Simulated assay, not measured.
Amino acid sequence: MTSLLNTLSPCLCVLWIFVAVIQGDFVNLPTNDPIHSLAEEETVLLCHYKPTVGNVVVQVTWYKEKPDGNKDQIITAHHTNGQTAFGAWSRRVRFKSSDPTVDSSLVIMSTEVSDEGKYICHISTFPSGNFDREVSVIVWTIPISSLDPVILVEGQSYRQAASCRSVARPPPRLSWDTDLNGQSINRSSDNGAVSSHYSLHPLRGMNGKKLDCLVWHPTLKAPRRITNNLVVHYPPHAEVSGHNGDWFVGLENAALRCVSGGNPKPQSFTWIRMGGELPEGVIPHPNGTLTFGRPLSLSDGGTYQCVAKNDVGVGKAGDGDYCDR
């Protein structure tokens, strides 16, 4: 028996060397595996088999591996019988080259999320046999994002000021760009959706301040900024202007102006004279101006008060005797 094995060993070695010599190889392999592709864009799966002299590629077939381990046939090309694509793949794939037995790379023309998985490039040669190359594909999607601001009112308790939401593959990351004194809470779900909620104590000095949401994702070269300015409503703060202290009987074109802050801007202004009605010929205007439509008289003297009103509250301002002898 030992003599027989010694006799066969050189034969086995010769056979092994012969197989190694005649076997071709896959060339021009990508450096990145798995391949990261983007939904709705073209994906190219490289497969380029170079046979040795005396061998020929007879047929190329691409498969996708199913979750249960079975294979879904995608497309095949025979060196004499042409090409055939199968099922729904027939509208979505093609070979990159006009001669698939030379360059067998597969093109998915519009990639879908469901295309993620493992693919097999199956090469049939003669006389050497069959050779496989596996390619894994991960499909990313561009984030779809939104920001929902909340209108706050001064004096309210600590509460949510804005919500930012985004969904993508892989899940995005959210952050806030602001100088406001508040806190954020982030949440995520299994479908790639994430959200971030920013809360604070609303003060009138915060109105108009930046509260931007930043969306971070590997498909973006830089974070996407969703701009937003905080809105805080507060009552008007009225002031009266126009009286410089030297009004006199006979002065023409006299006017008082009610200057008011507040957010939103006051929707109405009301002028009253303390202790009585407005004099005849005195005209209040919607913009907060009170005009004297005739020269001033002694009867115009008194304390005038402006009341500015918005949806949040009212602001009052008044001054003393406007008419001197």
Rank of each mutant, 00 (worst) to 15 (best):
G293P: 07
A317R: 05
P284H: 02
H285I: 10
G315Y: 04
G313W: 06
P286N: 13
T291A: 13
A317W: 00
L296S: 01
N287V: 11
V314T: 15
L296H: 01
G276D: 11
P286V: 14
P286T: 14
G293S: 14
G313S: 01
R294Q: 10
P286I: 13
N310H: 05
G302Y: 01
P295T: 02
L278Q: 01
C306G: 04
D300I: 00
K309H: 04
G313Q: 09
V307Q: 14
G276W: 06
L296M: 09
V314E: 08
T291G: 03
Q305P: 00
C306H: 05
L298H: 10
P284I: 09
S299T: 13
T303Y: 11
P286W: 09
G288S: 12
L298K: 13
S299K: 15
G281R: 09
V282R: 05
H285K: 15
V314M: 01
C306Y: 00
V307Y: 12
D300A: 00
G293K: 07
G315L: 01
V312I: 11
S299L: 05
N310I: 07
L296C: 08
D300R: 00
V314N: 05
G276N: 08
G288M: 08
Y304I: 04
P279K: 10
K309G: 06
G313T: 05
D311L: 14
Q305E: 12
R294W: 13
G281E: 00
V282I: 10
P295W: 02
V314F: 10
V314K: 04
G302W: 00
F292R: 01
E277N: 10
P295C: 06
P286D: 08
G288N: 11
L278D: 02
S297A: 13
T303N: 06
V282S: 02
A317H: 00
A308L: 12
N310W: 10
V307A: 02
Y304N: 07
P284N: 07
G301Y: 02
